[in-house]
Amino acid sequence: MRALARPRTEAAMAVEGRGLAAGYGSLSVLADCDIEIAAGSLTALVGPNGAGKSTLLKLVTGALVPWRGTLSVFGGAVAQARRAGEIAYMPQHEAIDWDYPLTVRDVVRLGRLPAIRARGGWRAWLPMSVQPGADTEAALGALDAVGLAGLAHRPIGALSGGQKKRALLARALVQGARLMLLDEPLAGVDRDSEAVIRRLLIEARAAGRTVVMVTHDLDGTRGFADRVLLIRGRVVAAGTPEEVLGVTPPDPVAAALARTGG
């Protein structure tokens, strides 16, 4: 049996990409992109729409295959890290069909899938409902951490926008992944949800996890993110939030949008 979080030499870089090129069909989004994300950091990817922030995340998830370039996670092969359940992903709101017939608890429990598969044995072959109670307990614990314990049995579609994000964050937390990739976790959420999500991401980093999030709110990275990467087809600026805010115009997103005509 294979342990989920097996001990390994601590790599300095959680994500390391060299010469990455990627896109959709004939549309090129990333070209000759080098990227480094330090292990244990909280990194924000910012940039205009269509700049390749989500595309970068999708390369790490494996949902998109790069046209060129190499990518490693914690110093090893990405595919291996994926199979070991070391990477968790939280999609944008629009990417999900919220009418899907699952309760909040069902959604969070899907985060236990890597652990169930790693455990192996005949039971791993059976449906989620007959897995050991510990998996459900863990899901309920994560729901408690994001403040949704009382809504566990609601249909996922009945939640507010912020609550849905918290449920997806609970799914990532219960997976116990070392690398969390979050696509716009703070977009369109209410104040309470934003506070909860920010606190939990800071706690996750404190627990040694690496957090990578896409955001449009550059000002919101101050005093929160360790590093900000400004993306425009590649990494055009990298540094602390103050450094990146300094090298970019006062309202960088709007300015960048004006430049790209987007």
Partner: peptide, 25 residues
């Protein structure tokens, strides 16, 4: 269906997360 219902659930609900945990989507 019995063997892969949990994998199919994740794949149909959130295909990117399914790829992220190494399912052969």
């Amino acid at each position: 269906v019995a063997r892969f219902v949990k994998e199919l659930t994740l794949y149909t609900f959130d295909p990117v997360q399914a790829a992220t945990i190494g399912l052969d989507t």
